[in-house]
């Protein structure tokens, strides 16, 4: 069963623990500038929004890659960049409508979320549950539950 990263921006406080954890997992260095998840702050609205790859099924990045450096991890469903194949042409960064695959100046390759092999460091590091890793078929479960709770049904007549 695949799982998906599920993001609830309302719970995000903007602490960037996710960015730090992501960079440590992938580079061994605490370095938010190399994180594959990014928290955006909309100051005048008081909103913080963590944003990363949603692992499209028919992925633009994967389809655009001229050297087949982006492949599906069968275990997790993650679209994974193979560094030894990637030539750093950045075509995928143009193709992705969401901007969640990016070039890394240090490695000369592109990088994107790979779900950490099935145990995403960002979700583990999030102190508020704004980032969770849930059943891929039920990313809407929390919202459904919240709306269901509003349904005006009396317990007893």
């Amino acid at each position: 069963m695949w799982k998906s990263l599920h993001i609830d921006p309302k719970k995000c406080t903007g602490c960037l623990q996710c960015e730090m954890a992501c960079s440590v997992e992938h580079t061994g260095v605490i370095n938010p500038s190399k994180s594959r998840i990014k928290v955006f702050s909309f100051e005048t609205e008081g909103r913080k929004v963590p944003y990363t790859c949603t692992q499209c099924t028919d992925a633009w990045c994967l389809n655009a890659c001229p050297v087949d450096a982006i492949r599906i991890d069968a275990a997790t469903g993650a679209k994974q960049v193979f560094d030894d194949v990637c030539v750093g042409c950045k075509v995928c960064t143009i193709a992705c409508p969401f901007g969640t695959i990016n070039y890394n100046q240090d490695s000369g390759k592109v990088q994107k979320c790979d779900l950490c092999g099935g145990d995403p460091a960002c979700a583990a590091a999030c102190p508020t549950g704004a980032i969770t890793y849930v059943d891929a078929d039920w990313t809407g479960l929390d919202k459904m539950r919240a709306w269901a709770a509003k349904a005006n049904t009396a317990v007893t007549e």
Binding site: T13, G14, C15, L16, Q17, M20, E45, G46, R47, K48, P127, T128
Partner: peptide, 18 residues
């Protein structure tokens, strides 16, 4: 409006108001 965290803070006592 909401609370907010400083860098790396898992407490998030900061106030964002309107």
């Amino acid at each position: 409006v909401t609370n907010a965290a400083c860098f790396g803070c898992t407490i998030a006592c900061g106030r964002i108001s309107e």
